[in-house]
């Protein structure tokens, strides 16, 4: 199983000829991911060095190749349009790694994604996701993975790699790791990914990696209360001095959530085990796995 992507996932890459796009497409293919099409307006009819056919539009790419997931690696000023193009073409999964998309571009894009109800969206400003031994969409380094029973969802890129790496070194494998990204207006959030892991028979334990700011961890904690699977949590930024005020309006809208302690408390109250340090995560996961076997 694994969640969201596997060997059957057929990826169309928007921005496949860009420096980042072509490099990471190669990495994804090396990992065994089926990259079936690329999209670059004006370059339709060409093929990439790795033999991937290029189309002018996502719709044409989908019609010709039955692509069912989109990887977006285009500059920020074009990214929201690319997300909308993927959604309009009916792609069930869209992953955008682009950093620096104007938030006023993302607000209507998210509205369309929600109303349309067809596409699940991961990002933006995220590392993407990887299902161990099966497929990856994004820029997560693949060499650190081992197949196994642990699902990972995280707001941070390198901290995800850190934790996957430490699990692998401890001999504990993974199903899927999802980096949901750090933008203010975000696609899938903790709770959405946790639901997927809860439903995935291969995933036995979930590691959730949050950080200070926002209230997505608290929302995730609400769902954890209902989960049958154990969750190991970690919150980064415990030592950060209180951040700058966002003006009155931000405080009024978002209330007082966002502190590291508040998130740790919410996760603990929901039944998750919260690691004080990343070094403790493999042992906590192992303990949770042992409990299930016993």
């Amino acid at each position: 199983m694994s969640i969201l992507i596997d060997q059957s996932t057929r990826v169309v890459v928007s921005g496949i000829t860009g420096r980042e796009g072509s490099f990471h497409t190669g990495q994804m293919m090396d990992y065994g991911t089926q990259v079936v099409a690329g999209v670059v307006p004006g370059k339709g009819g060409q093929t990439t060095e790795r033999g991937v056919p290029i189309f002018d539009t996502v719709a044409e790419a989908v019609a010709a190749t039955d692509a069912n997931a989109q990887f977006i690696s285009v500059p920020p000023k074009f990214a929201a349009d690319s997300i909308l193009e993927g959604a309009a073409a009916g792609l069930p999964l869209i992953v955008c790694i682009t950093d620096g998309i104007p938030v006023q571009d993302m607000i209507p894009a998210m509205r369309y994604l929600k109303t349309n109800g067809v596409s699940r969206f991961i990002g933006s400003n995220c590392p993407g996701l990887l299902s161990a031994g099966k497929a990856k969409i994004g820029i997560i380094p693949q060499d650190i993975f081992l197949t196994g029973p642990v699902g990972i969802v995280s707001r941070s890129g390198t901290l995800t790699y850190e934790i996957v790496d430490s699990l692998t070194r401890a001999g504990i494998g993974q199903t899927t790791a999802v980096g949901i990204g750090g933008d203010p207006v975000l696609g899938m959030r903790f709770v959405d990914v946790l639901k997927e892991f809860e439903a995935d028979p291969e995933t036995k334990v979930v590691v959730m990696v949050g950080e200070i700011g926002g209230s997505d961890e608290e929302a995730g904690a609400e769902f954890i209360k209902t989960m049958s699977k154990p969750v190991v949590g970690f919150i980064g930024g415990r030592s950060a001095p209180p951040g700058k005020r966002m003006g009155h309006a931000g405080a009024i809208v978002s209330g007082s959530s966002g502190s590291a302690q508040g998130k740790v408390d919410a996760l603990t109250a929901a039944g998750a085990t919260v690691a004080d340090t990343t070094a403790d995560i493999p042992a906590l996961v192992k303990a949770a796995l042992n409990k299930i076997v016993a």
Partner: peptide, 16 residues
Amino acid sequence: MLEVGWRGKSGYNEQT
């Protein structure tokens, strides 16, 4: 008092 994250450029560090 609202704490905001320490994210970089595209995040929500108010200083950026």
